[in-house]
Design a protein around this nucleic acid. Structure first.
Lengths: 334, 334
DNA sequence: AAGACTATTGTTAACGTGTGCATCATTGTG
DNA sequence: CACAATGATGCACACGTTAACAATAGTCTT
């Protein structure tokens, strides 16, 4: 059917071994022989059979890119940026295989033979089992986006505490003192980190926040909306709100406008994540950008390094987040 | 290293051929032998080596999902929905390999051996060359999202003319008569189709549109903004605008509010595509939804059918679009 | 009861590539 | 000039799987 090195060998009058060596640029073969063989290969439109290569070299040329889920929950922008980042690094050295972890009924098919390395973009603690399976099989692995401490696993994520600190500090620097916090979902690492950053900022600037200015959320529109309603009922409502993600911020904004108030004229709002729609809502949302694309790039680079140099580092890399100032915060005159 | 059928054979006291047959549930093998071998395989945690399988069966178990570009331009939501749709169909029968067409320096590596089938989500006429390469190699192929007439190629896309008709009709039915059109980018098939739908609606309802109510756009924010400014300068500005995509609609809305007018109170706007942000802008944008996920599902289903039944149909499937009514259109009292 | 047939299993080769070792020619050395 | 060293190439096997064909034992037919 398709042309093989044996076909080339016949035409060149050499053995297939020589062809194999020539095409792999082995120093054993004479330069002019190499060149002649390359010519013929090109002319015959030869492409190596990667299944055969894989079989003998014990490399699959596959890189897995696994998300917690493809079917529900994962935000499109997040997904897109992650793939983009990884893809920009691997070029054509590897094939990128995209999968949702929840599509696996069994991890049995995830083996050393079928993946040279795997990137898990983890959004949930439930991913722990697949992470351990992969690490257990000795497949080079990097986990993005969620802190993980399994041995032999690379871990790249953004410094969310610092991001929350940035956002909260910004509110204070704009003159706000009555600042409320809508927390993330209980049990999520990110929720804890973001809350920690908020509190560090308050301590750092000597601002004290009453207990009534703190409400738990679920990372969804609904819970942000509800929390904001509670804040508005207070005798002294906050002048600014730090919402632990953009989605809840949106819910909060809705609640504010339903109450006949305006953002940012009456109440300022800051979100977290810089979701795609953050720039498009009115007012455009001031928020914290996590460098997803950079995280995935960094992760891919280190993974390839681990694969090609056969060392398994256990390392955690924290990347800085960035405050994106838009229109949802008002500067208070003092 | 890892366990092979020969290892199982040794333990079971049979030949490796018998093991292969047993695990493939061949009718040649006695039922109890099969069961015994399955037991042993399970117990040894055996997983087939897919490289070896591929080599002998001449199937790669890979499905390519190619986008025009991953690095620039492709919208995140579009990208996400397409992957989701395809992924939901293939389950674990195939590996999904995601690539940007512009990442290829040469199509040489795209062969029958490395892909059992390919889905091209095409957004540009420039994709024609890869489409022809793939079709030329005899690889089962389906092209989504853009009309294509290469022989042997399946083609699934949405009926954009019908969508534009829907949107335009809606404006008329809400009482609008002075309706302007911001066209798509010249030379794009979608631009022509959407314009056609608009004009059919006008004819159908007997509404005549002056030449000054038609302006070309480039599918970007900027051009929508600019076109709207022109409309606003007219002696009799339109009461409604059909923008050939959401992005330009957003630009138009911006121009309207800059002019001190409100959407939809003063001017109504309809977009096209139902981009992710359409629901989040203020006012939420009434627009036409293309069933991307359904298109990619449908495409994947037909591709698999073609692969597994080894027939190459040349067929074009048009899927209906849907009008998503939100808040950007006002009902005019007559 | 002999031959034909069937059910089950084994033998061997094949897929396309890479590699250790053998082979051969050529050059260098004393 | 004989022999070692070097450079270039080929031979044969391996990787893990499937499949055509062979082999064996048991069953059926007449």
């Amino acid at each position: 059917m398709s042309v093989t090195i044996k076909d080339i060998a016949k035409l060149a009058g050499v053995s297939h071994t020589t062809v194999s060596r020539a095409l792999n640029n082995s120093p054993l073969i004479q330069e002019e022989t190499k060149e002649r063989i390359r010519q013929i290969a090109k002319q015959m439109d030869y492409t190596p059979n990667y299944s055969a290569k894989s079989l003998v070299l014990d490399r699959s040329y596959n890189l897995g890119l696994f998300f917690t889920t493809l079917s529900k929950g994962t935000s499109a922008g997040f997904f897109y940026e992650a793939i983009r980042g990884v893809n920009s690094v691997i070029q054509d050295r590897y094939q990128l295989i995209v999968k949702g972890i929840d599509d696996y009924t069994s991890f049995q098919s995830i083996t050393r033979k079928s993946f040279d390395g795997i990137i898990v973009v983890s959004q949930s603690d439930d991913d722990q089992s697949i992470i351990e399976h992969i690490a257990g099989k000795g497949i080079p692995l990097v986990v993005l986006n969620r802190p993980v401490s399994t041995a032999g696993v690379l871990n790249v994520l953004s410094d969310e505490e610092q991001g929350a600190f940035l956002a909260s500090s910004y509110l204070i620097e704009q003159g706000h003192k009555r600042i409320a916090l809508i927390e993330g979902r209980k049990g999520f690492k990110s929720a804890q980190n973001r809350k920690d950053g908020f509190e560090r900022a308050m301590r750092h600037y000597g601002v004290t926040i009453p207990e009534s200015y703190r409400l738990p959320g679920l990372y969804d529109l609904e819970s942000g909306h509800h929390a904001m309603q509670q804040f508005l009922k207070l005798a002294k409502p906050p002048t600014a709100v730090f919402s632990c993600n953009d989605e809840m911020a949106l819910g909060a904004i809705k609640a504010i406008s339903e109450a006949g108030l305006q953002v940012p004229a009456d109440i300022s709002v800051v979100g977290f994540d810089d979701t795609v729609f953050a720039a498009y809502v009115t007012p455009a949302l001031t928020t914290v950008r996590r460098p997803i694309e950079q995280i995935s790039k960094e992760g891919a680079i280190r993974l390839l390094d681990n694969i090609e140099n056969k060392h398994h580092e256990t390392e955690q890399v924290l990347l800085k987040t960035e405050l994106i100032v838009r229109e949802s915060v008002k500067q208070l005159s003092i």
